Amino acid sequence: MAINGLAPTRGASNMLVFCYVLQVCSNYALRRPEKFAAIVRVVCLYVLLFIGAFLLPTLLCGVNEILSTPNYLMGLPQFLLLWPFFLFYNYSATVKLILIPAYTIKLQVSWLFVCLVFLELILPGVTLTTVEKFLVVSEKWLSRPFVFTGVGNVSRKQVGLLRFLLLASIGVWYQRVADGLLGVAMSKEMFVLKMLGLFLFLPFGIIVVTIRSSWFQRLRCWLFVAESN
């Protein structure tokens, strides 16, 4: 009806995405009925960790503005309350644009969306099962202890390559200083490094440290076995 102009396209796109999410979750629940409730609790724990990890960089970006205008602290509780809804809306809109590229004037479903629905029809529960296996492997890899190995002996060929790269980098730096572009490049590089540090390395660092902590692992195990006890 939306394709023929007999119904609102935005409502139809929302219904398509909702039906797909319902299909994926119901198939997974039917495939893992004995552990579905425990898995939902653990997923909620990781969602809260993700929200908290990306909330800290946002608060750090607004520290200067809060210090200059202390009245903004009055709106901090409202911001903390609306932050999860903002993340959900932002990422859900991104996923919706990937699955349904056009849903305003006309309705256009991507081939990725069709393939995902068809895959879930022929192999019920395969989507979330694959995601679960990937997350389990990633968590085990993040939780294992760090092992630092020795560098070993460096051959003459490697020493020569290092010398060549060092001379090449010195030449590039000298050329940038002579052209007067070093200050501009450094300012942009520092800005990029700052943004990467705040919104990439800091959140993922918090996630990794939290996952590796003993209290988080005990909490996760307690949520996973709470129903059986």
Rank of each mutant, 00 (worst) to 15 (best):
Y72L: 14
S155A: 08
L81N: 14
V43D: 09
S138G: 07
F148S: 13
V40C: 06
T149N: 04
T104V: 09
V24R: 13
L81M: 13
L81H: 13
S13M: 08
A226Q: 11
G197F: 07
L99H: 09
L49P: 01
L67F: 11
F113W: 08
F164W: 08
Q175R: 11
V117T: 10
L123A: 11
V43N: 05
V17G: 04
V63D: 02
L135G: 03
M15R: 05
L55N: 01
S213H: 04
N27S: 03
K194L: 13
F216W: 11
F148C: 13
K106G: 02
Q23D: 08
V63A: 04
K106D: 07
L116V: 08
S26C: 06
N71W: 04
A102L: 12
W111K: 07
L99I: 07
G5Q: 07
F113Q: 05
F113C: 09
E189A: 00
G5L: 03
A185C: 12
P33R: 06
F85H: 05
Y91C: 01
I211A: 01
L6Q: 15
G52F: 14
K133D: 05
R220L: 01
S214Y: 11
A53L: 02
R163I: 15
T149V: 14
L73Y: 01
L200Q: 08
Y174F: 11
V24A: 14
F224Y: 11
Q158N: 09
A185Y: 15
Q175W: 13
S187P: 00
K157G: 15
L219E: 04
M190T: 12
G125Q: 00
L182R: 06
F191I: 08
K188F: 06
F216E: 05
F50Y: 06
P124I: 03
V225Q: 11
T58W: 10
P124M: 07
L200C: 07
V131P: 02
L99Q: 09
E120D: 11
L182P: 02
E189I: 01
N71Q: 10
F164C: 07
N27Q: 09
V109R: 08
V154I: 15
S228T: 07
F86G: 09
T149A: 09
N71S: 15
P145G: 06
K194W: 15
V184P: 03
L193G: 14
T149P: 02
L162K: 11
V95C: 10
L198H: 02
T9L: 02
V43E: 09
A29L: 14
S92I: 09
A53R: 02
L112D: 12
L73D: 04
V47L: 15
C25G: 12
V172T: 03
W215P: 05
K133W: 05
I211G: 00
L81E: 13
